[in-house]
Design a protein around this nucleic acid. Sequence first.
DNA 1: TCTAAATTATAAAAAAATTTTATTTTTTAA
DNA 2: TTAAAAAATAAAATTTTTTTATAATTTAGA
Lengths: 300, 300
Amino acid sequence: MFDFRLKVFFTVAKHLSFTKASNELLISQPAITKHIKEIETKLAIRIFERKGTRIALTPAGKILYEKTKKIFEIYKELEYEIGTLRKQYTGNLVIGASSTIAQWVIPVVLSKFKEAYPSIKISLVNGNSTQIENALFEGKIDLGIVEGNRRRKGLRYTFFKNDILKPVVSSKSKYSGLDTISVKELLKIPLLLREHGSGTLDVILKTLHEKAKINLSDLNVLMHLGSTESIKTYLHHSDAMAIISCPAIKKEVEAGILKTVKLKGIKFKRNFRFVCNQGGQRGLAKKFMSFAKRHYNEKL
Amino acid sequence: MFDFRLKVFFTVAKHLSFTKASNELLISQPAITKHIKEIETKLAIRIFERKGTRIALTPAGKILYEKTKKIFEIYKELEYEIGTLRKQYTGNLVIGASSTIAQWVIPVVLSKFKEAYPSIKISLVNGNSTQIENALFEGKIDLGIVEGNRRRKGLRYTFFKNDILKPVVSSKSKYSGLDTISVKELLKIPLLLREHGSGTLDVILKTLHEKAKINLSDLNVLMHLGSTESIKTYLHHSDAMAIISCPAIKKEVEAGILKTVKLKGIKFKRNFRFVCNQGGQRGLAKKFMSFAKRHYNEKL
DNA sequence: TCTAAATTATAAAAAAATTTTATTTTTTAA
DNA sequence: TTAAAAAATAAAATTTTTTTATAATTTAGA
């Protein structure tokens, strides 16, 4: 489905509310207002009547609503028919991914991909960046997905998605009431970090250094642990804070087990990137790359 | 019609050429390439087969082509049905515009507007910026359209469109072979300019001063004339150059009577703006404004 | 077979459109 | 009458699209 603006209209019409539509579509209410205005300008007619805090479809809006439904039907047909073509693709694809990605990011994509291309056989192997790069050279995998910005000669890197790391605490901890903390406050809170040499620790230290001139020695480090799972388990039983990749804490945050805390003025960001042999960015690997990228950028 | 990307696909499919589509749609060929790629990513399937310098629709492309046709049908229905609703609007609208706008820009919009809203009665009055602003205060007009950036208290200005002025010569003149001239060369060529105090002359002098530190006295001014028509007529019979608003020379350039010349490093730009009383940016005036703006920004 | 012309692809920079954040206005309901 | 709820507005930030310039590939003609 291509036309996001039409989707916005449809969602607003369904709820008869800009605010509800903004929640459903995960964009802000002013953005909704603008889209609707844009449609009204394009059609040179009002599609919603604003009466007080309520809105209602105008006659023109009703016409648009009917047409929109028809158009969405056609998009559905398109998806279905293209889907049957995709099912004809076959082959083998071996993907290597570093830990955060392999554990929390790629499985989601993999299940969707398998749905779209049921005849393609996929396997996923796990390793750190160096191991993945070696496996590519040795032809053991077709495609790697790694964290950070390192690059090695002879390989081709392609941006996949941004990853955000957020400070989290257990919702049982004494810090769970915090919403936003300053850098100064952060220095006092006991921190759980990954081991030296891990990509995650690197990003955290680099960001803190660049944005706030803070070094590892300034922090109140409770302990270095060898995996994100260890940190999460420890967090659960302590009054400590950790800084963890969003996808790795999504479930726990939604369930109310962990709580994210904002750190004023600082965002921890890193890249996830695809990596493949210089010639190899075609065929199934390429298909998977664009599929995965799309999965994370999809609005409709 | 909303979805430009679909329009791009359709145009490419029609011509089976990215380049021809880019000419028809008035965007660059790389932009076409990107749109098609975007669709291919979204559908996770190729829609054009690239064989050498030719392209052909893939099976998926053929499906998309059929669906696109259906979707465009629905948009056509929508336009038609909304059109019948618009025909119900009635009222009176008096517009004041300064000369370039009144003569070459607004008539085009007016005819389209009348088509969309046949029951609205429109009149157009002519005047310079000050006269138009006065007429607004006195309630003699509902909406003004003026050149330049001046603003007067109590009035509300809204951007309408950019206007580009270009150096032109008669295609019979000895300068007609020129494609691009430097600022230095400009100084030698006899120029026809508008009279002192005209907005057009102001823009030209201001631009030359800002971009090339050239003053009026540096130019080889043949004469100051009181209207663009006078300048065009004079040009026709002389080896002079003038700098005139694009819409005012469109016909003559297309007919090959006048020829535009590029001035290296310099573009003459100004704004056309709507102006209305502070309360009055609603109703028909507002409708006309958005209609006119859309007329000039429309891609589909 | 080589060259020139035609066509699509790519990359970086510029321009335009969209989105967010913060705030204001308007209306409703307590 | 006031507080809450919802949409509008404006400025800033972000993202997307477009252009410009160039490269790479293929075809047709010499």
